[in-house]
């Protein structure tokens, strides 16, 4: 426990330097600091909890192996997050983004009450995201939550920008429909 206390006051820069020296305590501390947040990222992309844990492990192995490439230009957390997202995307087949249909493609935008969405907890939102088909979920995550543009998403996934846009629209419709269902249940 004492070792953990001591290491918790070490700066990020010192931790990175420690990891570059293959110091296991520094490696563990980096994992302790960022793994909880990155697990949420993995959960949003993965199909289930076990896959998320696998992604997280693979991503952190890459983080340690590529730490020398981190130039300190952006935030360290952002750099780790990009690695985690890219690792998660490797689990998806390109077909996932073109062949999925939920029967909701031609529906009108239902426009769920923003107030209801605002009242949902993070775990409830996670559940809603999980109910999306793979393609919708990935594009929605990348665009709406990570903040990538359609051009970047198209580049990352090897799809057309228009495909990314349409997937996003369908994902939103489906999420809104799910929120409406929740609204009905609540009423």
């Amino acid at each position: 426990m004492r070792a953990v206390k001591i290491i918790s006051i070490v700066t990020e820069e010192e931790l990175i330097q420690g990891c570059l020296r293959e110091d296991p305590q520094c490696q563990q501390e980096i994992f302790r600091r960022y793994a909880g947040k990155m697990l949420v990222v993995c959960m949003r992309y993965a199909r289930h909890h076990l896959e998320a844990e696998d992604i997280l492990q693979d991503a952190f192995i890459k983080v340690y192996n590529r730490l020398g490439q981190f130039q300190g230009k952006g935030s360290f957390e952002g750099w780790i997050r990009r690695i985690v997202v890219n690792t998660a995307l490797k689990n998806y087949d390109r077909k996932s983004f073109t062949h999925e249909k939920m029967g909701l493609e031609d529906r009108e935008d239902v426009g769920a009450d923003p107030h209801v969405i605002g009242q949902l907890h993070a775990e409830e939102l996670m559940k809603l995201i999980h109910q999306l088909p793979d393609g919708y979920r990935v594009v929605f995550n990348l665009y709406a939550i990570e903040g990538y543009s359609h051009a970047e998403i198209a580049d990352m996934l090897g799809i057309q920008e228009s495909t990314s846009r349409s997937q996003l629209v369908k994902a939103r419709k489906l999420l809104q429909a799910q929120v409406l269902e929740l609204q009905k249940i609540a009423v």
Binding site: K37, V40, R44, A122, L125, A144, I145
Partner: peptide
């Protein structure tokens, strides 16, 4: 809807 999800989940 994007903003709601981002606000709740980005730092979760």
């Amino acid at each position: 809807i994007d903003d709601h999800f981002r606000q709740r989940l980005y730092d979760h």
